[in-house]
Amino acid sequence: MRLLKTGRWITGVGLALLAAVYVRALAFTPVERFQGPAQKIFYIHVPAAWSAMLAMGLVGIAGILFLLLKDPRFDRFGEASAEVGTAFSMVMLTTGPIWAKPIWGTWWTWDARLTLTLFLFLLFLGYLLLRGAVTDPGLRARYSAVLGICGLVLLPFIHLSVYFFRTLHPQPIVLKPSAPSLPGPMLVTLLFSFLVFTVLYVGFVTQRYALSLLREQAEPHA
């Protein structure tokens, strides 16, 4: 159906652009002085973490809208966004340590991005488990909305506690993801990567939403 095709198309574009990001980051972006080539993972990890956070934020907003307007489309969207967010988080949480081990010598550090992603992953996991545990669709939608809203409100508090993580556990190498102080070409790569991940997010969510719709149409009574 059309929505699914649109979704696939967007995702295809996104993946192509992702390849472009890789190329640009590896070949056309200057190497950072103190950290060397290893720093380049930053162009992937920061936008990925951001996408996961975007996904959670939108789950929360969809929840608010669902409770106010009772439109099941918002619930469907929330589910799609949560699944995509889970996927992004899982990728981050697996590539992060795999990359960290050879570079820093440990599998896990309490790096701000990884910790944030871990939190997000736990939130998404809870959301999906709750959905799985409730059979009645109306109840499931309401419960998901409530949990999603709580997750959204938690986000600023996660940032506030992650900051304390970092001051407690000094990093083996201090990574500074603060965008404004980046020189030109690096900033461009980063922003480009943000754009690509947002495109990927839109593409994946569209497809997932479409699949959800198709499934509902195929089973007249859940």
Binding site: L123, L129, A133, F157, S161
Partner: peptide, 20 residues
């Protein structure tokens, strides 16, 4: 309370909210 595995589900849901 109204789901199966209520006792397992509650800690999982609550975990990210308890950490901060």
């Amino acid at each position: 309370a109204r789901t199966r595995f209520a006792e397992l589900l509650l800690p999982v849901l609550l975990l990210p909210f308890m950490i901060p």
